[in-house]
């Protein structure tokens, strides 16, 4: 099996120990959504503020992360919050697809579009740099932990779904 350093890269531990955008936002204006991993009890609570600009483009103006869980789920949530803050919903969704495709080498049922499943070492959408999120690449070698890494992204997708239907 792979070494611990493949999974727990230093940048992951940094986000785990010093999570970005940790906390809560007032609802409204923010939208609150909880995500659970029923197998392990990990929990991510997202507070997301979305505003439309003058052209009607919706943008994530603020995001906070609450909840508890393992280093992978919590660092992934921290990185996700930093990556999507200030992005348009369209950009955030594209980032989500890129991230999930990186996570999908062993698992075809972790959510997202199965059509995007591809080799983890060849990012299909190289124009979307994942930044810190690249550090989570090693998670695919530990299949049971993939759900930890994708929990916050699935919760974000739920936020957007709920906003779109409200």
């Amino acid at each position: 099996m792979s070494g611990l350093e493949d999974l727990y890269r230093e940048i992951i531990l940094d986000h785990y120990r010093s999570p970005r955008n940790r906390g809560q936002l007032d609802t409204p204006p923010a939208h609150r959504t909880e995500g659970f991993n029923p197998l392990c009890g990990d929990e991510v609570v997202l507070y997301v503020e979305v505003e439309s600009d003058s052209d009607g483009v919706e943008r994530v103006t603020d995001i906070k992360v609450d909840g508890q869980g393992c280093s992978i789920s919590q660092s992934s949530a921290s990185m996700m919050s930093a990556a999507v803050k200030g992005k348009t919903i369209e950009e955030a969704n594209a980032l989500s697809s890129t991230f999930k495709s990186m996570m999908s080498i062993h698992e075809h049922d972790i959510g997202g579009d199965g059509s995007e499943a591809g080799p983890a070492n060849e990012s299909p959408t190289a124009e979307l740099p994942l930044g810190d999120l690249e550090a989570l690449r090693g998670v695919v070698k530990f299949p049971v932990r993939i759900k930890c890494a994708t929990l916050s992204w699935n919760t974000l997708a739920q936020v957007f779904d709920e906003l779109a239907s409200s």
């Binding site: 611990l4 999974l7 392990c40 990990d42 869980g69 393992c70 280093s71 992978i72 919590q74 530990f142």
Partner: peptide
């Protein structure tokens, strides 16, 4: 976290 304990 317990998951990380178990992983190690």
């Amino acid at each position: 976290h317990a998951h990380d304990v178990s992983q190690v």
